[in-house]
């Protein structure tokens, strides 16, 4: 029986927790704001994951992990088109291009990266199909979910913090007129440089992310870092009127509810047995 629902009501953390505790085997199909993905589990362990929007095979995974060059990945894909990931892995290992450990680590890294991205999906739908494992020919891994849930939750908190700091991506950036940190002391990563190169009052952060094919999480993290370093400043649009914080009415409701304990009726076992006998007769 498939488990179906909405990510808004039943989040990724809860789903993984259920799969872990129930030691489930099957595939979790997700449709979220960034597209589709499916995650495969065997007896409560994450064995495979892929995003529906990208056809990721082993050479791509190895290239992203820095184990193959773009040219090597292209050649392998061209020569081994239609072959399974396992076959490609065997060939690459036997040819001495990579070691078995590289494959294991790269696949693990790819699967985890995808799952952590999915943690930020707070809307969309899910469907868990028990016993369904579309992983034939794929390189699988086996990852205990406890740590994934903890790390995902930590990243989610980071994500929430980033969202608090940078609520909208429809704002622009400009270089700070008086940087708080001497520029010569700043080391920027390649990704940060890519963002810096688009800093212009005419480009919104959203547009910068699109130009660089970055996810919301990636761009928020980078912009947050640049803001903290005092390199850039936000050009803020007019702020909308403050609205009431969500959940307020519920908090008030909870406070109003008096916590007087109801008394348990003083009943004897005989009464309960009489109830049981009567209900059986109904």
């Amino acid at each position: 029986m498939a488990l179906k629902g909405n990510l808004k009501d039943f989040g990724i953390t809860q789903l993984l927790n259920l799969i872990n505790l129930a030691r489930k085997t099957g595939t979790l199909y997700l449709e979220g704001p960034e597209g589709t993905a499916f995650l495969c589990f065997k007896e409560g362990k994450l064995v495979y994951a892929t995003s529906g929007s990208e056809d990721v095979n082993l050479p791509t995974v190895l290239q992203r992990a820095g184990k193959l060059t773009a040219e090597q990945a292209r050649v392998v894909q061209a020569n081994m088109a239609g072959r399974s990931d396992r076959d490609m892995a065997m060939m690459l290992i036997q040819a001495g291009h990579i070691q078995q450990q590289d494959v294991v680590q790269s696949v693990r890294q790819y699967v985890l990266g995808l799952v952590y991205r999915i943690f930020s999906w707070n809307e969309g739908t899910f469907r868990f199909e028990p016993a369904q494992l579309p992983i034939q020919g794929k390189m699988v891994t086996s990852i205990a979910l406890e740590n994934v849930i903890m790390e995902g939750s930590r990243r989610l908190k980071e994500w929430e913090r980033l969202q608090d700091e940078l609520p909208s991506l429809d704002v622009s950036l400009k270089f700070a007129e008086k940087p708080t940190t001497p520029l010569r002391d700043i080391n920027l990563t390649v990704e940060e440089w890519r963002v810096i190169s688009f800093v212009n009052p005419r480009n919104t952060i959203q547009q910068i992310a699109q130009y660089n094919s970055m996810t919301e999480f990636q761009i928020r993290k980078i912009v947050y870092g640049l803001l903290q370093a005092g390199i850039v400043e936000i050009i803020k649009p007019a702020r909308p009127a403050a609205t009431e914080a969500p959940g307020r009415s519920q908090r008030v409701e909870d406070q109003v509810r008096v916590s007087t304990k109801a008394r348990r009726p003083d009943v004897k076992r005989g009464l309960i047995h009489r109830l049981i006998d009567r209900i059986r007769e109904l």
């Binding site: 007087t260 109801a262 009943v267």
Partner: peptide, 8 residues
């Protein structure tokens, strides 16, 4: 809470 008063 009113309904829960005295429940079995």
């Amino acid at each position: 809470e009113i309904l829960s008063e005295g429940m079995l």
